[in-house]
Design a protein around this nucleic acid. Structure first.
Length: 973
RNA sequence: GCGGGGGUGUCCGAGUCAGGUCAAAGGAGACAGGCUUAGGACCUGUUGGCGUAGGCCUGCGUGGGUUCAAAUCCCACCCCCCGCACCA
């Protein structure tokens, strides 16, 4: 069986489009609500994971629309960036893996694939594919405002943005190390490398040890410059050939590999001559910080491919150095071989310069013996080094033999020494890839290059950070846990490169060699949506969109007539654009995945504060987690990426929407699974069947409001309130859970209860109006999440217009009926108690007898209940109160009071407040009214007596156990 | 390291913000029964321990604390996942 989902979806998508209900224009009579979501990068089709963020934004838009707002929810496409470029290059080169991905996972047709050699064709293809998917998911987007980030008009907008930033002093220029492909002549990111490795750049401090009697230095490279005070010798690898190079006029002796690398870092690097490593052994150098005489010694662990290939030896605090030194000292032949003085070498002892808690003076030695390291090529040395590095950095203090750094923490000392060394020319900086080797897709080995005169947006500016903080303070951030994270990001954010040399995008207005990078041209485009409609409509030429035009529209600067004359844009069009912007801005809610928090979302905040006045800053950010596929991360290599359109054809758009929204809280990862999606679809089909059934039923003439009707309607109001509260915080999962499952559970109970007299499974006619009320609310509440099926159900139920534009239900306080709910809870308890006893008895019951509590018990109970609302009950006081209210006291009474005090001190205030309103005389009456139902549930005969009933049947003397809200029970078997 | 999220029963996973009716929703699996030629699907029941009366004991990463009362609040510790940029 099952529904024809596809035709229902198409039907409503078509009707929505025809009725243009999602096209929003300024309407001064209505409040606006502006929702955006980070636009997609069209280098692949969207998959189920992307679907989550967009669906959430759509649900939000739909919810606000039902709340009566004039909602604007637009969409655009982010063509800017290099990955598309890299992809087309790979296609051109016939990359089998990528072609296979496109063909089999993404389903790109052969003829289209051929066009992918042009980057723009990749973008155009996936743009259309993604857009189709969005329409098929039922997103309520105003498509009139669509654009791409390489539209010339948009480029004008971005140029305006950058001019503003530059005017505001937010742009700086400087040099920066980047991963670099020497062959392509471009910086490389993760997507440019073989195996998608992100180049990690490590910063070494080079400390220059001048050789005695020579015009050359041995530049040792280290990550721990503060240990220079503990240097006992220098290590070079005797089996390696070194070179003497001129580095900006200074002579360095380094490995040839280091010389190659330096070319990308230093201005002038020239190799002068080759020098064998062994010939360096025995030379004397001078420690630049204290003038100590330092001997050059041999060590095979020295890697010529790492940094300079020259290492300063700090045996006290570096396990490698310690073991190498011990090694050498124990081998006289080796010492002699290099012509060294045995006594001199043997006299070298580690120097202790740092104190670390729980370590001796020579921490390196501690770790060596602890880990049982035996030689200088032992792999455990790596671990020892890391451990010590971490401990000293965290807990270490500089000793008194470290000159002006003594007493500082290691962390402080490192910073200060680095600065001092570089300032004095005794030190320098060298970069190295931490995760080398890395290869560019073209095959060349990636190096580190200082990228000259790079343009930056200076997110490190303190005054700017203050503005950003102010914006965050005023903003709503959902879920609230994320606020802290934004706060931290602002703290550590610094200069961010904002332009690059290749890729699609907009050229920097003042330096056209550069293309504005994609995280920098996507920060205030929400403003552009407001005018994109008009630009598209009137086909406003890009060249007319001058900076003065944007100043006028977005900042209200200048005079309409003048701006019109100056730009050549009609006054009317200009005025309209200004109107749209003023009406829809600021942005009310921005949605994205949590991966964009440390970059895009924070940049958006920064740039808004730099360009717009405070009343136009964004008002809310909503962050959601990602989607796993059957418990695993989605990835191409696992082949578990399901394109969204495929998901739609498998489960239907609504079931898919429900699955990505209803199975995890905002921040948590959704674990998508086929079985869940399938059960969601089945759940919706069940709802459909039920609605059809109810819609076809005759409504009973009299709409008698009996106990169960009151109960059902009361429960419904609570669920509406709960779902509304949840939606307001975008806790969509909770809202769905309430609207779909909790309401249904109560509805099932309601139907179960009222069917007691009816033989058939049909709903009694007088209950139909109640059921319809429930369904009406349920369909409205589900409409944002599952719009297609809800439109269908809305139509079946005879609703007016579209459910998408009808109102969200409002709980009716007058229908809240505490008594009905209390009575019903009471009944369920009575049944469960009896069932519990039957279970323990392990007998089939013949007759179940309930005894309700006597008048005096109720009197005392009511008294104690009143008293307990004032504060904690004490047994002694309670006994006094009991005596007052019934005028006597005996063992039975005190036992009862003790029990009640215990119970009353345990139940929540809310239920006490409900109970205090309860008319206890109804207890027995209510049980009697429901005898048939209880009998059916327990599958036994049921009788009810009052504890004081003269005609009581109580063979086992159980009646005296009766308590208010808890009748005594006797079960005959 | 810094920052963020998280550790719940056989497993997955709610509950934690607003402490109490929480032995802890909902699934899955397992077991028993119904249906069926059989399997599947479906339905009913059981699924921490003890108990011939609605009860008791143990229990929500570990250890403390606050409280009449803690899965929920506070402190410390252990473990897992994610981010730390020039990449969308």
């Amino acid at each position: 069986m099952g529904l024809d989902w596809a035709s229902i979806e198409l039907k409503w998508q078509k009707r929505w489009a025809e009725a243009k209900i999602f096209e929003s224009d300024p309407d001064p009579k209505r409040d606006k609500y502006f929702v955006t979501v980070a636009y997609p990068y069209p280098n692949s089709p969207q998959h189920i994971g992307h679907g989550r963020t967009y669906t959430l934004a759509d649900v939000h838009a739909r919810y606000m629309r039902m709340k009566g707002f004039n909602v604007l929810f637009p969409m655009a496409f982010h063509y800017t960036g290099t990955p598309i470029l890299a992809m087309s290059k790979r296609i051109r080169e016939g990359d089998k893996e990528l072609i296979e991905t496109f063909k089999s996972i993404y389903g790109v047709p052969e003829d289209k694939l051929k066009e992918f050699v042009e980057p723009i064709n990749i973008a155009r293809y996936f743009h259309e594919e993604i857009k189709r998917g969005m329409i098929r998911m039922g997103y309520s987007i105003d498509w009139r405002r669509e654009f791409t980030t390489i539209d010339p008009q948009y480029s004008q907008f971005i140029r305006w943005q950058f001019s503003k930033l530059r005017e505001g002093g937010y742009i700086t220029q400087g040099s920066h190390p980047v991963g670099w492909c020497p062959k392509c002549g471009n910086p490389v990111g993760q997507h440019d490398t073989k195996g998608d490795v992100e180049p990690e750049i490590e910063r070494f401090i080079v400390i220059k040890f001048k050789l005695s009697n020579e015009e050359a230095v041995l530049p040792t490279a280290t990550l721990r410059p503060e240990t220079v005070f503990g240097v006992t010798n220098i290590w070079v690898n005797p089996e390696v050939e070194y070179v003497k190079v001129s580095v900006e006029g200074e002579h360095w002796i380094i490995s040839p590999q280091a010389a190659d690398k330096l070319r990308y870092i230093k201005e002038k690097v020239e190799v002068l001559e080759k020098i064998s490593g062994s010939s360096l052994i025995g030379k004397i150098a001078e420690n630049p910080v204290n003038g100590e005489r330092i001997l050059v010694l041999p060590a095979r662990f020295v890697d010529p491919d790492n940094a300079t290939g020259v290492v300063m030896s700090v045996p006290g605090h570096a396990p490698y150095d310690y073991i190498a030194l011990e090694d050498l000292k124990s081998r006289e032949d080796e010492i002699k071989k290099f012509g060294l003085n045995v006594e001199e070498v043997k006299s070298i002892e580690p120097i202790s310069i740092i104190t670390v808690p729980e370590y001796s003076d020579i921490p390196a030695a501690d770790l060596i013996s602890k880990l049982g390291i035996t030689g200088q090529l032992d792999p455990k040395l790596e671990k020892a080094t890391r451990t010590l590095y971490m401990h000293e950095y965290q807990f270490g203090k500089m000793k008194e033999n470290t000159d002006k750094y003594s007493g500082l923490t290691v962390a402080e000392a490192r910073e200060r020494i680095t600065e001092d060394l570089i300032d004095s020319g005794l030190g320098d900086v060298m970069y190295e890839l931490a995760n080398k080797p890395i290869f560019c897709r073209c095959g060349a080995k990636v190096v580190v290059k200082i990228f000259k005169d790079q343009w930056f947006i200076d997110y490190g500016k303190p005054e700017w950070k203050d503005l950003a903080r102010e914006c965050i303070k005023k903003m709503e951030i959902l879920p609230p846990e994320m606020r802290k994270e934004f706060w931290n990001v602002v703290d550590w954010l610094h200069e961010k490169a904002c332009a690059r040399r290749s890729g699609l995008g907009t050229k920097l207005p003042w330096d056209e060699r550069w293309i504005i990078e994609s995280l920098s041209d996507s920060v205030i485009y929400m403003a552009y949506y407001t005018i994109a409609k008009i630009i598209n409509q009137y086909k406003v030429p890009a060249e007319n969109l001058t900076p003065r035009v944007f100043d006028y529209i977005f900042l209200g600067k200048g005079d309409l007539k003048e701006v019109s004359a100056d730009s050549g844009i009609d006054e009317e069009i200009l005025r309209k654009m200004r109107e749209e912007f003023i009406y829809f801005y600021p942005l009310d809610s921005r949605h994205s995945g949590r991966d964009l928090v440390p970059n895009h979302l924070t940049f958006m905040i920064f740039i808004h504060t730099a360009i717009f006045p405070k009343d136009l800053w964004p008002r809310q950010i909503v962050v959601n987690g990602s989607v796993l596929m059957e418990g695993q991360k989605m990835s191409k290599s696992l082949g578990n990426i399901i394109p969204l359109v495929k998901g739609i054809s498998m489960f239907g758009a609504d079931a898919l929407r429900l699955t990505v929204l209803g199975t995890a809280d905002l921040l948590q990862d959704v674990d998508f699974s086929f079985s869940v999606a399938k059960s969601m679809r089945e759940r919706l089909e069940k709802l459909y069947d039920f609605v059809c059934k109810v819609a076809s039923m005759k409504t009973g003439g009299c709409e008698r409001i009996d106990h169960m009707a009151r109960w059902m309607l009361s429960r419904l109001q609570r669920h509406i309130a709960e779902a509304t509260e949840a939606m307001d915080k975008l806790m969509v999962r909770r809202a769905i859970n309430t609207a779909l499952y909790l309401i249904d559970r109560d509805l099932q109970w309601y139907l179960h209860r009222i069917r007691v007299d009816a033989k058939s499974e049909d709903i009694p006619p007088n209950a139909v109006p109640i059921v319809r009320k429930v369904l009406d609310a349920q369909v409205r509440m589900l409409a944002p999440a599952t719009p297609h099926i809800c439109e269908e159900l809305w139509e079946i139920l005879g609703g007016e217009g579209f459910v998408s534009t009808t109102s969200w239900p409002v709980p009716d306080k007058n229908l809240i009926d505490d008594e009905a709910e209390e009575l019903e809870a009471y009944l369920i308890n009575c049944i469960e108690d009896a069932q519990n006893i039957i279970k323990v008895l392990k007998k089939v019951p013949k007759k179940v007898i309930y005894y309700t509590a006597s008048t005096w018990k109720w009197k005392v109970y009511t008294k104690l209940l009143t008293e307990s609302l004032k504060g904690k009950l004490e047994v002694s006081n309670a006994i006094k109160l009991a005596k007052e209210s019934i005028g006597k006291l005996d063992r039975q009474i005190t036992d009862f009071v003790k029990k009640m005090v215990d119970e009353l001190n345990r139940i929540p205030v809310e239920s006490k407040e409900r109970r205090i309103k309860f008319d206890w005389k109804k207890e027995k009456e209510f049980l009697e009214e429901n005898l048939d139902f209880i009998a059916k549930e327990l599958n036994a005969e049921v009788e009810v007596y009052g504890e004081e009933d003269p005609a009581i049947y109580d063979p086992e003397r159980r009646a005296h156990l009766a308590r208010p809200f808890r009748p005594a029970i006797y079960i005959e078997h």
